[in-house]
Amino acid sequence: MQLTGNTIFITGGGSGIGRGLAEAFHKLGNTVIISGRRAAALEAVTAANPGMASIVVDIADPASIAAAAAQLIRDFPALNVLINNAGIMPFDNVAGPVNDAEAESVVTTNLLGPIRVTSALIEHLKAQPRATIVYNSSALAFTPLAPSAVYSATKAAIHSYALSQRFMLRDTSVGVQEIAPPWVDTDLVEASGGMPLADFIAGTMEQLATDAEEIVVGDAKVLRDNPGPNEHGLVNGFNAQMVAAFSGAA
């Protein structure tokens, strides 16, 4: 994608990867609008980045999405980039009964949320001379983290959805890119030791500037390359290592 001259809407822009991407694009002179559920977090980001705008949106609520889309189209008619970044990552244990309410919340936020946001803006994006839809999936879309099984499954679904949408938009002005982060040191999970956020953002921006369909930075490449007839060994080994690491950090 072209990194300048854009009007960009980023969900989940109040912290972590979303904020990092928002600030990187803002520094390049793009018009950036961030969203999230917490008004105070959004205000802190926009105060630190004069000229950046924000909209409070709950992507688990279809009515909130519809209202935000109408506001964006009205107030930012040049909108041409959508970055679906918002997500939640609770841990679970699918060796026993699954908490239905929690599982529904993860699916609604991580899968239906991006689908609904994109659907609400797709016709507007198609009317732009050039436009890009970006999905923030995860390296766990390809090598699931067993203690976060529902989250991993939603990210695998987002990868699949991006593949289909990219094909369906092949004859339009809209491109589709997917960011598959490794473990990045953010507040998504209360643990440290991931890739420094600044390093991840720098590597991601470098790859976004190309026509790459998938943005794979750092250790994510090993997990991205895993699926295939022999994937089970790496999945089991990866999860044994991660369970041991999380147990040691507890």
Rank of each mutant, 00 (worst) to 15 (best):
M1S: 14
M1I: 06
L3G: 03
I8E: 05
S15E: 11
G20E: 04
G20W: 03
L21T: 10
H26V: 10
K27I: 10
I33E: 01
I33N: 02
G36N: 06
R38P: 06
A39G: 02
E43I: 12
N49Y: 07
S54H: 08
S54P: 00
I55W: 13
I55N: 08
I55A: 09
D61E: 07
I65K: 05
A67G: 01
A69H: 06
A70S: 13
I73L: 01
D75Q: 10
F76Y: 13
L82F: 00
I83S: 02
N93Q: 09
G96V: 14
V98N: 07
N99K: 12
D100N: 10
A101P: 00
A101Q: 14
E102A: 15
E104A: 15
V107A: 05
V107Q: 04
L111H: 07
R116Y: 08
T118N: 09
K126H: 03
R130I: 03
A139N: 01
A139C: 10
A141Q: 06
T143W: 01
P144L: 13
A146Y: 15
S148L: 12
V150W: 12
Y151D: 07
A153Y: 08
A153H: 08
S160C: 11
S160L: 10
A162D: 01
L163P: 01
Q165S: 02
M168F: 11
L169F: 13
L169H: 08
L169E: 09
L169A: 11
S173A: 13
V174F: 04
G175V: 09
A180F: 09
A180S: 15
D185V: 04
D187R: 03
D187C: 03
G193Q: 05
G193H: 06
P196D: 09
L197F: 06
A198S: 10
F200G: 10
G203H: 07
E206R: 13
E206L: 12
L208F: 02
A209N: 11
T210E: 01
E213Q: 14
I215N: 09
V217C: 11
G218M: 11
A220T: 14
L223M: 14
R224L: 14
V235T: 09
G237Y: 02
F238H: 03
N239P: 01
A240M: 05
Q241H: 12
Q241E: 11
Q241P: 00
M242N: 06
V243P: 05
G248F: 11
G248I: 06
A250C: 07
